[in-house]
Nucleic acid binder design. Structure first.
Lengths: 337, 337
DNA sequence: GTTAGCACTCGACAGCCAAGAGTGCTAACA
DNA sequence: TGTTAGCACTCTTGGCTGTCGAGTGCTAAC
């Protein structure tokens, strides 16, 4: 399975050219463009070998060769060197991430945008649920007669809130009392430990307002439920249009509706990848992403694993994508946790 | 400028057919499909007249005719009857809007989604700034040593928040004091009246914590600033792909990058339309939307004007789009405000 | 083992032709 | 005077053909 130096060089040249031009590359072109010290005929022999080994394929007789998925896989595994980001780009990103005034949602959006801008592919950021974090603060605020707002703050500064309907007779004071009761009972509990059963006592203590408490608990439960969902942010979908493989509208539509479908990408990504940079090429992905490649990495925030990555055509600049994803992951690593 | 009954009927038939098929429609087809009681030859004469008047045009000799933008304009102004929604659809929407547990952002997303789903075009919802609403509540919550969260609630239940850095020496008690001071000073003020100058007094009252107050004020200012921005939600971009006019990738890309550009659509929509249903066709729009049509309506929430609408090709089912937009506007009218 | 030469293959592209859809015009008709 | 049938004409569409060029595989010479 190991290739000699010349074959490796030829494979690499073909990959680079093909990724750049999206056209099959011929023997003559490869020699000329990369200043190889051998003749086109020799290259042809080597290419025939590489094809037999499954690293190249020919769309039809008398076209040039294109790298097969297996060829890309070999390149990625055995030859690739990640391209590094410029100091300037890193600085930009660092600024976006650490600016403490912005909240989590915005930071995530920024990261996704950064990834897609630098790589020119479609990027995604998956943020783990916040359920494992700690409860910091709960507040009930009256809005109009009959409506109140329940606000829940976790120690990461994540805020969840929801409107609830309350009886007209409930006073501001009532709300305050109930709120401080909640706080007392829940102080510094982990969100995933909050269970309705823990709240019996609370309910009995303020019996005459139990319907308010019940409503609040319902709302709380809904909030907790939604906090369990990972969030997925996608950016740079437009970049797809630059790739000639998407001149086929049907393909484009299929992929776009995949992206639009709630949770669809998330489920189609490899699981349990740790925090390494992981690359899946073409048919290594699930059926409906079989002509895309994914370059992704895990990152850890507050004990949970999230994922970042980019999605592009199989004919992808893996070296650049992997370098960028890696750099972003490292930055997340040193910033969060 | 007024057409006789037969011309109107022919124009209408051609519009309906063309909108449906996206192909030029010929005289024979029109007679057959719409059971007109006249012959194709007569229709040909009428069509020639309509063309001369500018309501139809011919892509080339010996193709059928297609409605010109002026033809669509005439139809929309003088002949169109809005299609009404089914009771069922209205009920769905009403439920989505009024479910009081969901917050504003979600309701908006729902409305946009509803619009795009029913019309099968791309929809947008522009939400006016909340700056004119009243301040209800402000809270400072400590997160970690050195970090706090400032939360601002308006009486509509809109929540704005931001992390701030604070000196390590600031205690929870300090935060509480500052918070209640803010509340005292601002109680029930309109957001657009909050000005830094009003806060002199406050700053002096807690002189030893003035740096915290300043930080909080900075954050507050940023929040108010962002609250002044209208939000724009777009939904159903995918629907574009169904329209044959977007088989041209270049066109598609241009429009998509328009959508991605912050505030771009907003600036390209007609201003000051009141709450009527307003239709702009093709070149009536700004240059870079000159082959799109927009059907939109204004709606009033809490004293400010917002907009809802759909964007599609010139070859649009105006009757359906207008009916839907109108229905949603009416529902918003009776629900909000 | 490498290279040059050469015949062969196949896709891309332009040109051509036939079919079909639709028109405009004219003459006949009510 | 408005309506209709007939007919010649126009223009697009799709299929077919032949040419061109890129690229290959094979063979023989180095």
């Amino acid at each position: 399975m190991t290739l000699d130096e010349r074959k490796r060089q030829i494979l690499q040249s073909i990959i680079k050219d093909y990724v750049e031009t999206a056209e099959p590359v011929g023997s003559r072109a490869v020699v000329r463009k990369h200043d190889l010290k051998i003749s086109a005929a020799t290259v042809r022999n080597e290419m025939a070998d590489l094809e037999e080994m499954g690293y190249l394929e020919q769309p039809h007789t008398s076209a040039g060769r294109i790298p097969s998925e297996r060829g890309f896989r070999y390149y990625v595994d055995c030859m690739m060197e990640n391209e590094t980001l410029s100091e300037e780009q890193l600085e930009d990103l660092r600024k976006a991430i650490t600016s403490s005034v912005r909240d989590l949602d915005q930071v995530i959006a920024q990261i996704a945008q950064f990834l897609s801008q630098i790589t020119r592919y479609t990027s995604f950021v998956i943020v783990p649920s916040v359920s494992a974090t700690q409860f910091r603060y709960l507040q009930l605020i009256s809005l109009n007669p009959g409506q109140a707002l329940i606000i829940l703050v976790t120690d990461l500064g994540v805020i969840m809130h929801r409107k609830i309907d309350i009886p007209l007779s409930v006073t501001n004071e009532d709300l305050e009392n109930i709120g401080s009761l909640f706080n007392k009972v829940f102080a510094s509990r982990r969100l995933d430990e909050l269970r309705r059963t823990d709240l019996r006592a609370l309910r009995e203590e303020l019996y005459q307002r139990r319907n308010v408490i019940d409503t609040a608990l319902d709302a709380l439960e809904l909030l907790l439920q939604s906090s369990k969902e990972e969030r997925v942010v996608v950016s740079g979908v437009l970049n797809l249009l630059n790739e000639p493989e998407f001149k086929d509208l049907e393909k484009l539509r299929r992929f776009l509706s995949l992206l639009e479908e709630e949770g669809a990408i998330k489920n189609r990504l490899p699981q349990d990848i740790g925090d390494n940079v992981n690359i899946t090429i073409g048919r290594e992905n699930p059926e409906d992403m079989k002509d895309m490649s994914v370059v992704m990495a895990g990152y850890k925030t507050f004990g949970e694993m999230g994922k970042i990555g980019v999605i592009g055509p199989v004919r992808m600049e893996y070296w650049r994508a992997a370098g960028t994803v890696e750099a972003v992951r490292d930055l997340l690593k040193e910033t969060f946790y």
